[in-house]
Design a protein around this nucleic acid. Sequence first.
DNA 1: CTGGGGAGGGGGCCC
DNA 2: AGGGCCCCCTCCCCA
Length: 479
Amino acid sequence: MEISSHQFHLLEQLNEQRRQELFCDCNILVEGKVFRAHRNVLFASSGYFKMLLSQSSKEMTQPTTATFQAFSPDTFTVILDFVYSGKLSLTGQNVIEVMSAASYLQMTDVISVCKTFIKSSLDISEKEKDRYFSLSDKEVNSNGGEQPCLYGAGWRAESSPPHPQPNPEQGTCMRGNTWSNFNYYPASQRNTQQQLSKHEQRQDAIKKSRHPGLQQPADIPHYKSSKLEDRAAEPAGHISQPEDQVQIEAEAESPHVGFQYGQGSDVISRRSAVSQQERDSPRPSSKSKSPKADEQYPSMPSIVGVMGGWAEDDLPRMRFKCPFCTHMVKRKADLKRHLRCHTGERPYPCEACGKRFSRLDHLSSHFRTIHQACKLICRKCKRHVTELTGQVVQEGTRRYRLCNECLAEAGIDSIRIDLEAEAPLEFPADGDKDSRWHYGEDNKSDVEIVEDGSSDLVIQQVDDSEDEAEEKEVKPNIR
DNA sequence: CTGGGGAGGGGGCCC
DNA sequence: AGGGCCCCCTCCCCA
């Protein structure tokens, strides 16, 4: 006979022990904050801890200490609360970092839920969309009507101890594979909860720089978008904006609707919000197919659409608001592109060096600059060079040009290499968007190496006609 | 320590 | 709608 409540009570007891720090044999240090937990619980919940604790299992008598800098204490609180309760407190503000942390900790269930949360955030029912069309400009800009809402947690660890949610209709929680609806917080509460990430602040900083009319604080910290793990540690900041803009954006946030687990998680790629460490590590030999951008957002039609006033021709001016920040764009495609800076998705790998890019044009630019030596400029003296006055130098997968003088100065004898014979780049199959241009590894042996005593420099004499032809032909990931 | 340049990344917008 | 270009900003490296 099976008592269904046993697992629940067991987890509840473990959580109680954690709160009272009973039998805790693992210390987790996150940016200076110490969390205490049980090894066996962590082991069972996280692939990362499983690996970590397996390695340190010999020293069972001493408490294990793990240190993390990749995410914030708040984020780890969400993760740890999930481990001990099955409830995941996701909000629009923390979902990216929670997913990043879950990726780091190899918690696939959490990643899946985060993905689904993000997808849900992108969805807006046609009904809601119609409502926006029907709103008059006055209604859009008035404070009186509906209050903007925000995905919120049913309980928050910092405000109240986690209690089991007997009613799955309440709270942001995942128990097993059962997902319950999110609660709403009115705008009045949101002000105290919502924290602008560095990225959002940077977005606003950009807005400010491009739209001087917007009032913004001068001391906006800059944020490099790829460093997701740094975000949550940022103090809350208030960005003042023109009233109408704030209201429009507040309205734009309201269509967040109830969320059901299992709506499909293929919207965001598996690489979404992977850790910076993972993203920055080049994978030169990687032949894995990157998820196509087309496949990332198969259900984008319900992206948040905002009527941002009226254009001069009396047509409503549609704008699309990012569900994760204050950024608004005129085109859906631009929003789709923008979303990648939140999800961390990098579907365009450079197969020459393994570096991944979020945008095809950036990949093309990278390839032309780094691997094709397209700039007819001597890298050393910056003078313009031609096929006669300069030559291509190959250093690993990197190519650049040097003028003959700089070559001689460096003591490197030029060696003419027929690029066509060398064929360093494979041409992608026509019409195959997934096909990749490959750096010809097989041809590396054909390249003569110049012994200059310091590096594996390869000097290639290339005439521009060949180079231009190559540039035209080799269009990575381009149909 | 500092300034300059290269590279990457994001937004706007044209085709 | 997607591709691609331009512009701007930030970060990083190096002299």
